[in-house]
Simulated assay, not measured.
Amino acid sequence: MSKQSFKELPISKETLKSLERMGFKSPTEIQAKAIPIVMEGKDLIAQAQTGTGKTAAFGIPIVEKVHPKARKIQAIVLVPTRELAIQVTKEIKDIGRNKRIFALAVYGGKSIKHQIDFLKKGKDVVVVGTPGRVKDLIERGILKLSDVKIFVLDEADRMLDMGFIEDIQFIFDQTPENKQTLMFSATMPPAIKKLAEEFLRPDYQTVRIKPEEVTVDRIKQIVYRVDRDRQFERLTESLKEHPDTKTIIFTETKKGADELAGKLRKKGFNADAIHGDFSQAKREKVLKSFRKNQLQILVATDVAARGLDIKGVDLVMNYSLPKDVESYIHRIGRTGRAGKEGTAISIMNTEEDNVLKQIQRKTNADIKVINLSDKKISSGNGSFGKKRFGKRRFTRR
Results as ranks from 00 to 15, higher is better:
P131S: 04
P131M: 09
V79K: 04
A271F: 10
Q174I: 02
G129K: 10
V223H: 00
L195F: 12
E352R: 01
Q115S: 13
K267V: 01
L308M: 13
V125M: 08
K340T: 08
D203V: 03
S111F: 01
V369D: 01
P211Y: 03
E139V: 06
D167F: 08
R228A: 15
I168E: 07
G163A: 10
V299W: 03
I192L: 12
Y224C: 00
Q296A: 09
A186F: 07
K375D: 10
V286P: 04
D309M: 05
P131E: 10
V325R: 05
S18Y: 01
Q74C: 13
T343V: 12
K149Q: 15
F184G: 04
D124V: 15
K255T: 05
Q360N: 14
I370M: 00
I60R: 11
A32W: 02
K194Y: 09
Q180F: 05
S383F: 08
S327D: 11
T343G: 01
Q174Y: 10
K42C: 11
E155P: 04
Q115V: 06
G390Q: 09
A261W: 12
F102T: 05
V79T: 13
V106Y: 05
N349E: 15
I345K: 00
A46N: 07
F151R: 07
T15I: 14
D374P: 00
I329S: 14
M1K: 11
G307Q: 09
E213K: 14
N349W: 07
L44T: 11
F184Q: 06
Q180N: 07
K120P: 01
E166V: 13
E8K: 15
I345C: 00
K292S: 15
K246E: 11
E351C: 01
I297H: 09
K144L: 11
L160G: 06
V207A: 14
R158E: 15
S383K: 13
N318L: 03
P211L: 14
F278M: 15
I209A: 09
K65R: 12
G339V: 03
V128S: 11
Y328V: 01
G333T: 04
K376L: 06
A365I: 01
